[in-house]
Write a protein that binds this DNA or RNA. Structure first.
Lengths: 246, 246
DNA sequence: GTTAGCATACTGGTCTGACCAAGATCAGAC
DNA sequence: GTCTGATCTTGGTCAGACCAGTATGCTAAC
């Protein structure tokens, strides 16, 4: 029965994965470290190389390590892409999750803006200002405008100086980029949105500058709410375009 | 050079992974579906079985599929554990991320409570009420008290009826369970915390019952802020215990 | 006709040994 | 001392094999 006494009674893959997880979690394997070769790992744990590769591949998709061809396997700093992948897959199989993700994004961003009010430095302010200017310049362009919008919101999160919030936000923002763009397409149907987009973002910016978390949060929430309202009206076919046919 | 014309010019693993991702994202592979066997997949894509296993294992750790011994590989609904794993690893290598994760948790929970005010049903209210009662009962126990605290906050998020928020929250809450417990240990040092813990949670509960998002959010934030303050005081050695030695 | 039982095909889980291509290294030539 | 090339090492991959259970279907017993 004692065919496997290397570590525990785990199966091959689990054994290797657990072995590596232990060292990873314990800190004996830190970002930048190079793991021993696959072959060594295999003989060390008494498993075959393909099994070791499975474990390494598993860690790779989790963004924990990076397998470099003909170089070796090195520990990396956890990366956003994992969450991105996950949300992408998750969303594909549950499209109704989109609204949910949007809610999470609002959550992250509202918390971020509060922190931003406390922690933002001059560079953050400048980045926000540039993004704000860009929004004004690209107000009539769907693509560039959507990008500018995205940049502004990203700047808020970056200004929070919170790695976790940034990671979460960017992993979700990727899925919502098209939402920024489609929002800009609404501008064609709702000229009044121009004012909304520019003024809202300006007010948000000013609240951060004033370092007023409550006002910033409230303004940002209102911003999202108005955006939702526009989208709702677009769905029902309502328009306020002066030259609208209906 | 055309040794591989199955799909593209990708390397073995990438080829298989991309092949499966395509179908997963396109929806031709839905949760519950059983994949073709590893051997078939291997011959179909012109790669060896170990490579196929790498790809399947990769999808497994992403929570997309489940490999069942001697049964086959089936597509599953995306699972929380992925995020859990990720945060666990990420946190292990950046301990300073703990505060950050806490911020994200606050973000999620504050958004959740707003939604809960709109969406909570009777069952949610009852769950909250039970959790609230439990908090009162276990106020003097570190373990049970921490658990009750955790349950209450989880009940809030569940009441939001947002899958994404729930997933994110639980993936972070796991890392913060000890924080609930340690908070309860503070009760010994700060008797005034008993009132804080019970009263705060009651007020939060009432705000949700009243379906007042603003008040609920504000109360919850204040709750977290006070908790932070207690922890701060604990760090600097301040106590308000009447029988305190120093 | 129906059902119990067993042989077989199939599945994942794993191992062994091998080959390739290219980076890393070090000895020997200049 | 520097340059060059053979060799070692590393990841990337393959082929074939064996094991242990599951599923299935066919046969034999009822």
């Amino acid at each position: 029965m004692e065919l496997k006494r290397t570590t525990e009674g785990e199966k091959g893959f689990e054994k290797v994965f657990a072995f590596l997880r232990e060292r990873l979690l314990a800190g004996s394997l830190k970002p930048g470290d190079r793991l021993i070769s696959e072959r060594e790992l295999a003989t060390l744990l008494g498993v075959s190389r393909p099994i070791v590769r499975e474990a390494l591949r598993a860690l790779t998709v989790l963004g924990i390590v990076e397998i470099r061809d003909r170089i070796g396997t090195v520990v990396t700093r956890p990366d956003v892409s994992v969450l991105n992948d996950f949300f992408t897959f998750a969303l594909a199989q549950q499209a109704d999750m989109l609204d949910d993700v949007m809610q999470a994004r609002v959550a992250i961003e509202c918390q971020a803006i509060r922190l931003a009010c406390e922690r933002a430095n001059i560079a953050d302010f400048e980045r926000l200002q540039r993004a704000l200017a860009k929004i004004g310049e690209t107000i009539d362009e769907a693509d560039a405008g959507g990008m500018a919008d995205f940049e502004f919101h990203r700047a808020i999160v970056v200004a929070s100086h919170s790695e976790t919030l940034t990671v979460l936000h960017s992993s979700m923002a990727g899925l919502l980029t098209h939402s920024h763009r489609s929002r800009r397409e609404l501008v064609q149907a709702f000229p009044s949105m121009k004012t909304y987009l520019i003024e809202d973002h300006r007010r948000i910016f000013e609240a951060v500058i004033a370092r007023d978390p409550e006002r910033a949060d409230a303004t940002l929430r209102k911003h999202f709410a108005i955006g939702d309202e526009y989208r709702r009206r677009a769905v029902v076919g309502d328009v306020d375009k002066t030259s609208a046919s209906g």
